[in-house]
């Protein structure tokens, strides 16, 4: 409708879109604003929207008292650990499915997808007991294995949809030129596969970073990521909204930024390639 749109119509639509978008964004904005308040300003009535004494004290406090960086380090370790494992196992599989499909490939891919649909709570009991038995409760190893396996189907799917789009003709051409399989992979395939792999890494980091069911249930102190750290604020020990907001802002900032930069790729990953 681009041509017909008059300026006034366009302004109206812009106003409406921004009004609703701001409504959705407001809780995040309010959290960030509150994180710069003193605790007294945070619960002031009427609420102080912009005119208050802005302070960084909460950020310093959160770090000093609650060891924020340790939990942040745990989150980074867990999401990167599970992502690296996922790439090591997932890339070869996706490569095989995309470039040497057999008549069973489709069935195998759908079966992989179906494992993702098993509700975590269905296997909570045995996984918990297994971890207990092997002394893996509250360890990086335990949670990394869980995150890796529960995201593996999504990674393979996403890699597969990207690999499938690489034109086979290019491979055939390079093969005719006498390139070995290895050279083919290094010089021809890799450069074309990098964007897809990068998107897969992004999605997997976002999913692992935000995962809550397992991180709340199988970690305690040692390997607890930021999701669990924030959950510890839920105990009603008084109103520490400014500190809660500062901790929350720190916890979500990296992922929200990653999300902004990778919207379109995420759609493909999250819908298993059904929407591009």
């Amino acid at each position: 409708m681009a041509r017909k749109a008059t300026t006034s119509r366009r302004l109206l639509m812009t106003f409406l879109a921004y009004a609703f978008a701001l409504m959705l964004f407001f809780p995040i904005l309010w959290m960030v604003i509150t994180s710069f308040k003193s605790e007294a300003d945070a619960i002031a009535l009427p609420p102080k929207f912009l005119f208050f004494h802005w302070t960084l004290a909460n950020y310093i406090d959160v770090q000093a008292r609650n060891n924020y960086w340790r939990f942040a380090f745990n989150s980074v370790t867990l999401s990167f650990g599970s992502t690296v494992l996922g790439l090591l196992v997932g890339i070869p599989a996706a490569y095989a499915f995309a470039f040497a499909p057999t008549k069973n490939t489709k069935q195998i891919l759908l079966w992989m997808l179906s494992t993702k649909m098993m509700p975590a709570v269905g296997v909570l009991v045995p996984i918990y007991l297994l971890l207990l038995q092997f002394h893996l409760l509250d360890t990086f190893t335990g949670l990394i294995i869980i995150l890796f396996l529960s995201n593996l189907p999504i990674m393979i799917w996403m890699l597969y949809t990207y690999f499938k789009e690489i034109p086979h003709e290019i491979l055939e051409a390079s093969r005719m030129d006498g390139a070995s399989r290895w050279k083919e992979i290094v010089y021809v395939l890799s450069p074309m596969a990098v964007p897809g792999i990068a998107s897969t890494v992004l999605l997997n980091i976002i999913l692992s970073w935000n995962e809550t069911f397992w991180s709340l249930n199988v970690t305690n102190i040692h390997a607890a990521p930021l999701t669990a750290f924030i959950a510890s604020y839920s105990s009603p020990e008084g109103l520490f909204w400014a500190k809660l907001s500062a901790a929350s802002t720190l916890a979500v900032a990296p992922i929200v930024l990653l999300g902004w930069f990778s919207q379109r790729q995420l759609v493909r990953g999250l819908t298993f390639g059904a929407v591009k």
Partner: peptide, 21 residues
């Protein structure tokens, strides 16, 4: 970007911000 941001907020943060603030 504003409209889709809430999707990237981890569940525990979303729940606590709404519950308190």
């Amino acid at each position: 970007v504003m409209a889709i941001s809430p999707f990237f907020i981890m569940a525990t943060v979303a729940a606590l911000v709404w519950k308190n603030l």
